[in-house]
Design a protein around this nucleic acid. Structure first.
Length: 647
RNA sequence: GCCGAAGUAGCUCAGUGGUAGAGCAACGGUUUUGUAAACCGUAGGUCGUCAGUUCAAAUCUGAUCUUCGGCUCCA
């Protein structure tokens, strides 16, 4: 009898497991339980994601990644991308493969395909070939490249120039190939770091979604590539859920709802990226603005208004002409150059600088709903979310160093307060000093630690984005999460060391010396346009009562009830409720249907019974009949809902 | 800006070289309706724009504008 050598593995929970030497991760999973082995996908081996069949060594720390672990998608999707690449190369002779990573919710692969432009009709054909590869049950086998130069030559001779270039770049990082193999026969290979699933059959549910262009290494001077996007899941159910979510997102698309609900438009005559706010969305904006102004005035801000254009001189001082030139609209009047403002800050600084300031006056908080114009490249515009003219809910705080932390806390409080009114959840991120920053090390330290202190004292969780701040100062960004779990850019708080210097901002301190104030830029909605887009998609157009254009529609059962309907209307109008009567000669069912389609929160249905009892039958959007309610209590209930901003 | 796709009635879409279509919306009439579409009729389009090919162009070609999917960039 031979003595079996064993090795000791440290599991996730810190416990140790003895297994026989030469075991793989899969063996370890089997040794723990069969059901675990079935769900196992890969390993976190000493902190790195590795193939499930990686060999284990004595003392390794191992966490088994199962299908329940979100990290398992990296394996699945990246492997599905490889199957896609193999399928495309089988179908389109001479195709060269570039890169194919897993991305959020899916994957893509980039190809150079000579003499064929991919069309949507190609996707089902490619899917079929992928399914064939999956059904063949090929193994993903990792092969280390011992002679990089020889392998590069091989890639080059088979025309795989992108693989050759990738390998050249990584030749000193223990390069590996992944090959698709069956019965020891290799059918396909790619230069790849991995990790992968074990066999192609593990791909249970995938779909190719779209085609687009891309460049090798994202560089428009390099080769043009064709990209295929897809998604891949562990089960058909999960795939269907995901596809349904995509469908739901499409239904909620603010551009689509914008047309359907007549919220806004952009027109050829007025130009791209320039929004016409139609009455329904203008009402929502008015509510956003009123709410904003009310909270800002309550929280020590002062309102200012500044022009839309300014002489070029201003932008020379601010530095915009130097750093922001390609984003600005220019015009010449009376031989004088003017610029359409891309930011409000220089104007606020001018207001600050009009008089001398005492340390006693600070902080000064100057707020403006300022409309700015930025030249955006033609391909980047997107509905209300990315435009050329937009209104920032901008404010600048000029304060002393000793007031700085409190001021930041005040802004965080205001952000919290405002988002509450919309029922939105958010998270915070702190971005620190980038490489090409201006300002001394001391001032950056002061600024960053101040932001951090404010976040901590406020008790807000945050993530740090190292080196992601603006060149002129660090910032806190707020990310908003919508009803579908998608992330939107929200509020931002930025320190600025640049403008106080350029505009020579001063205040007179206690001891009579001239000191430079700290300047904070901050916006909470960010852009009213983009925030409106967020609200449209978050609520799928069914806005809460306080944000609805039409809050109530009165539906008379027949013409006989028009008189009473008008009475209901004027009574609600007196209470400042936005109401109208549907007096069309349509059936009640048709009126209800139209009101539902127009996403009006409440319907007040009135007929003989209601008129005689001085009440109404209430029907709520999407909820249906709520029964009869006295007119007065209905009005009171709505007023309360509006006042409390009930979601 | 770059790559690719698309643009037909207010909206959603059909129409692949030979007289521009449907549904919904609009308008007129009939119906007077009890919780998601009553019925009949009328009107509405230089087929994004400009050139070209052709006896003939929504349809083929080119340019241009806009939109969409990406790349890049960003509030």
């Amino acid at each position: 009898m031979q003595t079996q050598t064993t090795i000791s593995i440290i599991l996730k929970d810190g416990s140790k497991k003895e297994i026989s030497a030469g075991s793989t991760g899969l063996d370890l999973a089997k040794a723990i339980s069969n059901s675990l082995a079935k769900k196992s996908v890969g390993l976190l081996l000493n902190g790195e994601l590795k193939d499930l069949i990686s060999a284990l060594h004595d003392g390794d720390k191992v966490e088994i990644i199962t299908q329940d672990d979100p990290r398992s998608f990296e394996y699945l999707r990246h492997s599905t991308a490889h199957i896609l690449a193999c399928a495309v190369q089988n179908l389109f002779k001479g195709s060269k493969i570039a890169n194919g990573p897993a991305i959020e919710n899916g994957f893509y692969y980039d190809f150079e395909i000579p003499e064929h432009q991919l069309k949507p009709e190609d996707l089902p054909k490619i899917e079929k070939e992928m399914q064939r590869i999956i059904d063949e049950d090929y193994s993903f086998v990792k092969v280390s490249v011992d002679n990089s130069d020889k392998q590069i030559q091989e890639f080059k001779s088979s025309g795989e120039k992108f693989k050759a270039e990738n390998l050249e770049e990584h030749k000193h990082h223990n390069p590996t190939l992944y090959v698709l193999q069956k019965d020891g026969k290799t059918v396909w290979n790619d230069f790849c770091r991995g990790p992968h699933i074990a066999t192609s059959k593990q791909v249970k549910a995938f779909k190719l979604l779209s085609i687009s262009g891309a460049y090798w290494h994202g560089d428009e001077n390099r080769e043009k590539l064709q990209r295929i996007y897809g998604t891949s899941w562990w089960s058909k159910e999960a795939l269907d859920d995901h596809l349904q979510k995509l469908e739901e997102a499409e239904k909620r698309d603010h551009r689509k709802l914008g047309r359907q609900m007549e919220l806004f438009s952009m027109q050829d005559e007025s130009g791209p990226g320039l929004i016409l706010w139609h009455p329904a969305l203008a009402y929502l904006r008015k509510e956003m603005e009123d709410y904003w102004k009310e909270l800002h005035l309550q929280n020590g801000y002062e309102m200012v208004y500044t022009p839309h254009i300014a002489k070029s001189d201003l932008w020379n001082i601010s530095g915009h002409n130097e750093f922001y030139k390609e984003n600005m609209f220019y015009m010449t009047v009376d031989e004088q150059d003017y610029v359409l403002k891309p930011m409000n800050c220089p104007f606020h600084v001018l207001i600050f600088n009009t008089t001398r300031h005492s340390y006693r006056e600070l902080p000064i908080r100057m707020a403006e709903l300022g409309t700015v114009y930025r030249y955006e490249r033609s391909g980047v515009m997107h509905g209300l979310a990315r435009v050329r003219g937009f209104t920032q809910d901008d404010a600048h705080i000029f304060c002393r160093k000793d007031q700085y932390v409190e001021e930041i806390k005040g802004v965080i409080k205001l952000v919290d307060l405002i988002y509450k009114g919309f029922g939105l959840h958010y998270s915070a991120e702190l971005s620190t000093k980038p490489k090409d920053a201006i300002g001394t090390k001391e001032i950056w330290e002061f600024a960053e630690s101040g932001l951090e202190q404010a976040l901590k004292e406020y008790g807000l969780e945050y993530k740090v984005n190292p080196e992601d701040g603006a060149f002129y100062g660090p910032k806190i960004d707020f990310k908003l999460k919508d009803a579908l779990g998608r992330i939107w850019q929200g509020a931002t708080i930025q320190l600025d060391f640049n403008l106080p210097e350029r505009f020579k901002l001063h205040y007179t301190d206690k001891d009579g010396t001239q000191q430079q104030p700290v300047m904070v830029h901050r916006a909470i909605y960010g852009s009213l346009e983009r925030f409106a887009a967020l609200l449209i998609e978050h609520f799928a157009g069914s806005f809460p009562l306080w944000l609805s254009y039409k809050q109530v529609v009165v539906l008379p059962i027949s013409d006989k009830h028009l008189e009473y309907a008008r009475k209901v209307e004027s009574m609600l109008k007196e209470k400042n409720i936005r109401v109208e009567v549907d007096d069309r000669a349509e059936s009640l069912n048709a009126k209800i249907r139209d009101a539902e389609m127009n996403k009006i929160p409440y319907m007040a249905i009135v007929g003989d019974k209601e008129a005689s009892e001085n009440n109404i039958s209430v029907r709520a959007r999407k909820k249906g009949d709520l029964g009869k309610v006295p007119l007065n209590s209905f009005a009171e209930q709505l007023s309360k809902e509006i006042k409390e901003k009930t979601i």
